[in-house]
């Protein structure tokens, strides 16, 4: 069985229906009206031990809500969750030892205490042995640079420092699976790189990861699987590479031509593509639609005009793909 198994996971929030203003509020007191809102709608998900899953979707798609359901913070309206065989909201404490959770928007450090004290409190809650604790801190210090943060009160940390301390807090007990909800939100490039580096190391240690983010750079070299959701429903689940192959429709090919040929001549043999001057003197960049042309067709068409030296096909940018998904174009293209 997979480490995380969710079947038909659904969360319905009841939203009060209020008219605006004080009158509306008073009216609501007397005559309460609610509307059901499905934040998560029948999600099936299995995550094997050691996998790293990127969980993406536009704002309000239901990512955070899914994580809260998987961690046992929320009780599902329908459907089941099992993490390592335990139902998170029922066997809360057993489950808590298996998981590490970070909500990038919010800290779990105690506001008025130095970081050191917060970590010590967590040590006690997880009943970590002094040697294990020391060893863990050293390890986390290496990658996150905790040392300088230890004596600082949580409320005095900068956002980047706070995120580093929070990562340490979430990983102190060496959880089997780690859920990270926007771990790089608001961070500058250097801290972001540091966090990503940390995630890669976590991966290498064999920790199972589930990561939500709006910065797709986070997932490119950390996750090999991507799950895309929108309006509470899963719309893609598979290897990152497959998603790109399947859905990145626009491809870009860079060619180093043997001789100097006018662009128009190349364009003439390649209808329905975009031919542009490349970086070098003899290079061209051809942008084409993968569904109307294959790379082979492009090359053989160019060969009719001139010899080709170097050839390079751009990897489809994950941003482009996901942007389309968000815009609702993905499903139509895939059929």
């Amino acid at each position: 069985m997979a480490l995380v198994e969710a079947r038909g996971l659904t969360k319905v929030f009841r939203r009060p229906q209020k008219d605006p203003g004080l009158r509306g509020a008073l009216k609501h007191l007397v005559q309460r009206r609610f509307k059901d809102f499905r934040a998560v709608d029948g999600i099936d998900l299995s995550i094997e031990a050691g996998e790293a899953v990127a969980y993406v979707g536009p704002n309000g798609a239901g990512k955070s809500t899914t994580i809260k359901l998987l961690t046992g913070i929320l009780v599902p309206t329908k459907g089941t969750v099992a993490v390592d065989g335990h139902q998170p909201h029922v066997e809360r404490i057993v489950n808590a030892r298996n998981i590490g959770v970070l909500f990038g928007q919010r800290t779990q450090l105690w506001w008025d205490l130095p970081v050191r004290e917060s970590l010590a409190l967590l040590r006690d809650m997880y009943s970590l042995s002094p040697t294990f604790y020391k060893q863990r801190l050293e390890r986390l210090d290496d990658v996150l640079g905790l040392g300088e943060l230890m004596p600082v009160l949580a409320r005095k940390l900068s956002l980047g420092q706070r995120m580093r301390a929070d990562l340490a807090a979430a990983l102190l007990h060496q959880p089997k699976i780690v859920y990270l909800d926007e771990p790089t939100i608001g961070l500058d490039i250097s801290v972001k790189d540091r966090v990503r580096q940390f995630l890669r190391e976590l991966r290498a240690d064999g920790t199972t990861l589930m990561l939500t983010t709006h910065d797709l750079g986070d997932i490119e070299d950390v996750c090999e699987r991507i799950v895309i959701i929108d309006e509470g429903r899963k719309i893609f689940d598979g290897p990152l590479k497959e998603m790109k192959d399947q859905f990145a429709r626009v491809r870009r090919m860079h060619l180093q031509l043997a001789s100097s040929v006018p662009l128009a001549q190349v364009a003439a043999v390649l209808p329905e593509t975009e031919v542009a001057q490349g970086d070098g003197p003899h290079s061209v960049t051809i942008t084409f639609d993968r569904f109307t042309h294959t790379a082979g067709q492009i090359v053989s068409a160019v060969l009719q005009v001139t010899e080709v030296g170097e050839l390079h096909l751009d990897e489809p940018a994950i941003e482009d793909v996901v942007r389309k998904v968000y815009a609702g174009e993905l499903l139509r293209e895939s059929v």
């Binding site: 913070i73 030892r97 959770v101 919010r106």
Partner: peptide, 20 residues
């Protein structure tokens, strides 16, 4: 939503809230 973290720690939520 400040019960999120107490709920994912292996200690009674009540103890964490009362001690805070």
């Amino acid at each position: 939503g400040e019960l999120d973290y107490p709920l994912i720690r292996p200690a009674p939520v009540a103890a964490q809230v009362i001690g805070s």
